[in-house]
Design a protein around this nucleic acid. Sequence first.
DNA 1: CCGGATCCGTTTCGATACTG
DNA 2: CAGTATCGAAACGGATCCGG
Lengths: 147, 147
Amino acid sequence: MKSAAKPRRSTCPFDYALEVFGDRWTLLVLRDLLFSGKRHFREFCASEEGIATNILTDRLKKLEAWDMVSRSRDPESGRQVIYHLTDKGLALTPAMLEIIRWSAKYDPEGCASTAFIRRIKRDRDGLVAEIIAKARRARRDSPEQSD
Amino acid sequence: MKSAAKPRRSTCPFDYALEVFGDRWTLLVLRDLLFSGKRHFREFCASEEGIATNILTDRLKKLEAWDMVSRSRDPESGRQVIYHLTDKGLALTPAMLEIIRWSAKYDPEGCASTAFIRRIKRDRDGLVAEIIAKARRARRDSPEQSD
DNA sequence: CCGGATCCGTTTCGATACTG
DNA sequence: CAGTATCGAAACGGATCCGG
């Protein structure tokens, strides 16, 4: 991910996560994959934040190169491309939930107390497990796995 | 933070966190504040990632504008400026620890099992409390609070 | 049509040199 | 030491085009 350029390392291995968490569009795609169940190129495009197609392509490629997203194709209705999170991608769930929790706490527009947020506070670990299990099921039930 | 431009909102309030977590340099500054106890402009500059001074100024200003960082000045040795995390900034600790945990798990350079990482796995909540308490103490003991 | 590549004008970012 | 000014490089957004 970081082409072994940096020799030194601080107390915590944070650099590795920087390209994932340090990029706005990457985070948005991950959010959509984790919490909105989006799977298709056009669905990501439809996010209200309005990601451009070239940017989306780039980020999906990066995520795939990092083994965080897998790319498959519906063999029947040939032209549908489906994106799934790998286990490495799904492992971001706890971090993403903590970010959402912080966001909900301080967002002045304060849509703070959705059921989702309350669930994070009350039963974080259960929620993590549920999200991951659901995503794995969706991935397994998906048409075909390519490459 | 987001000047009330977007009318609609998805399931989770994620947008609010995007400017914080979607920016590489902001994350690095926060990391240094949280885990390295850095307080001075020059200390952030000295990070191995090599942040440029104008970028650092910009990000510190943003963090201050978001009430995540407070800026004070040593009244004795006049020209020293000291930065501290506010409680809002400190509230990022759980999210940052989860990011570090993920990072440690998948970083191929695998400096995975430092004492710090083990501590995250074993006693996350205790570690969060400890980090926050320590930062609050440092903030209180600091020379003066300005503005 | 869907997924994606390409081109291009504009904006933002960031490295360096410089200043109070 | 903390921060600004300058300017080239990179990223972005939007439109358009292309292959299956």
